[in-house]
């Protein structure tokens, strides 16, 4: 974990309420795809945890949905403004178990962390299939970006206005060696049931600190209680314990 100041390079809408922000700063604490950052906003007490979409030596890309006052404030920020960010939070996805043909399943703002993951898996020579699920055509983002990386990319929409009608689980490829997923919990549950391989799932929870100190985001797993922010947000399919 590292606390440092980042400067906004660009902050542009991808859809009506989803924004992409590119920041420049010290990314050295980020060690794996699927990790997150925790952003301080002026006038807001708690930081905003946002998943890392992409990063390199000096830039960080995040994609966020405007859901409340904090993200509204972020959407109004301009290039050149700075943000105090804690980086390198959470465990992130493990690449080793991917096999030759992993499938990546993302729903809504669960899509972004899969982008850097796809890059890393492709760099390892994997054949990567991506299924992106949205409610409707106007909410779709990053289809071309995944295609441009060289992923076999499918889109599903709940209302059938684009791509295959249905959920990401309706577009699972016939054969895959492993799965990685991120999205709302009902989607994660559906993926858990629909997949026939092992895999990793990224979870969300309201957080206090984001670095393991407050126990605000704990969840029960088959291997004991875990902090979503520290031992998570990525859990192995085998350790997940669904409650209720």
């Amino acid at each position: 974990m590292k606390q440092s100041l980042f400067s906004i390079v660009s902050n542009t809408p991808l859809t009506d309420n989803v924004y992409k922000m590119i920041l420049s700063g010290d990314t050295s604490a980020i060690t794996a795809p699927g990790q997150f950052v925790n952003i301080q906003l002026s006038g807001k007490f708690l930081r905003r945890p946002i998943s890392v979409c992409d990063y390199d030596g000096e830039t960080l890309t995040i994609i966020y949905k405007v859901v409340g006052k904090g993200t509204e404030q972020m959407a109004a920020m301009a290039p050149g403004e700075t943000l105090d960010i804690l980086t390198g939070l959470g465990n992130g996805y493990a690449l080793a178990p991917a096999g030759d043909r992993p499938v990546l399943l993302g729903g809504g703002v669960g899509v972004p962390p899969l982008y850097h993951l796809a890059k890393r898996l492709l760099a390892l020579g994997k054949e990567v299939t991506v299924v992106l699920g949205f409610n409707t055509a106007s909410e779709i983002f990053y289809e071309q970006e995944f295609q441009a990386l060289g992923c076999k990319t499918f889109v599903t929409t709940v209302d059938g206005s684009y791509g295959k009608k249905g959920f990401v689980t309706d577009a699972l490829p016939e054969k895959y060696t492993y799965f990685y997923t991120c999205g709302p919990e009902p989607m994660l549950k559906a993926v858990y049931r629909a997949t026939n391989t092992s895999g990793q799932m990224s979870f969300e929870q309201r957080m206090g600190c984001g670095f393991g100190a407050c126990m605000g985001c704990s969840c029960k797993t088959l291997t004991g209680s875990k902090r979503i922010c520290k031992e998570g947000p990525v859990m192995r399919k085998e350790e997940i314990l669904w409650e209720a």
Partner: peptide, 14 residues
Amino acid sequence: STPRIAECTSGMIN
């Protein structure tokens, strides 16, 4: 159970 955290003006609830 979670959620265990809520933000407030100049503070938080846990």
